[in-house]
């Protein structure tokens, strides 16, 4: 388990990191390393240069600014899991963080690294979609905002372009009729999501479902928004039957991947089950 030779630079500023990326198109950003380093040790990834952004000041923060939650890309899973602020204003994030890997992984791994890596079974992408987050990508040419729905492109492929670094994740604060939940089946070996469903619901004043936002990971080559589920939920009160009917659409039109642990049929079924569970829990919390 010895990686191929590579150069390593610990960038002191974001500009320095961006300049290094611009000079070397095969360089990779080290942002926690809990996916990249194992791949390198197996020589499945052999980047000639690692640009470590772990010491860059001001990439690790959780703050609230004018109704917007801002999370720095280098914020660790543990920092999110244990954030009192997030537990109050965006509980989906701490809940989701608690499902990632194990304590050691959560202490080292970062939300930005994970989102940019876009593992098809990663937990964050489901939450990012369900929260309608915006992602701030920065390059030498400046910043741009990417919507969650546009960010996850294909298997481990995101909207980030060569030379771009994910800097921040922005989420609009929800109101007090919002309920959120993450439901997941853990792969017994890797801990990744066999299926993970993030639900973010807002009820109207009469208890009807005003807005539903559902992100699903683990099922396909990338995390996706379960549009059919969302539209089946919106507009009326959510009872058990209504939720089950909506959840039945969890994998509609999705190209499902099977593997040793879960076939395509079983994954479709799990997507429905965990969608139902996530919605039920979110509904209860919204009420």
């Amino acid at each position: 388990m010895i990686s191929a030779p590579f150069d390593y630079v610990r960038a002191n500023t974001l500009d320095e990191a961006l300049a290094l990326l611009a000079q070397n198109e095969d360089a990779k950003i080290l942002a926690g390393g809990h996916s990249l380093i194992p791949a390198m040790k197996l020589r499945l990834a052999m980047p000639p240069l690692l640009v470590d952004i772990g010491r860059i000041k001001d990439l690790s923060y959780i703050r609230e600014d004018h109704g917007q939650i801002q999370i720095g890309a280098m914020t660790t899973h543990y920092q999110i899991e244990s954030s009192d602020l997030l537990k109050k204003i965006c509980p989906l994030l701490p809940e989701c963080a608690g499902h990632i890997g194990d304590v050691q992984v959560r202490n080292k791994g970062t939300i930005g690294g994970s989102v940019a890596h876009s593992d098809p079974s990663g937990d964050w992408p489901a939450a990012i979609i369900a929260l309608n987050a915006e992602l701030v990508a920065v390059s030498k040419n400046g910043e741009r905002l990417v919507k969650a729905d546009d960010f996850f492109v294909d298997l481990m492929t995101t909207a980030l372009e060569a030379g771009e670094i994910l800097r921040e994740i922005r989420i609009n604060k929800s109101n007090d009729r919002t309920g959120q939940a993450y439901a997941k089946m853990h792969h017994p070996a890797s801990g990744f999501a066999v299926v993970g469903v993030a639900a973010n619901l807002t009820l109207d004043r009469n208890g009807g479902c005003e807005k539903a936002s559902i992100g699903i990971t683990g099922v396909s080559s990338k995390a996706y928004r379960a549009l059919a589920v969302e539209s089946a939920l919106t507009g009326s009160a959510l009872d058990e039957q209504k939720i089950a009917n909506a959840a039945a659409h969890a994998a509609d039109g999705v190209d499902i991947n099977g593997d040793l642990f879960a076939s395509e049929d079983y994954r479709r079924h799990l997507a429905q089950v965990f969608t139902k569970r996530a919605i039920a829990a979110a509904t209860e919390r919204a009420g």
Binding site: H187, P188, A189, S190
Partner: peptide
Amino acid sequence: LVTGELMDYALPKASQ
């Protein structure tokens, strides 16, 4: 060998 790593070969864990 498709279970060549502990990512796929599921050892029991204390939490289980």
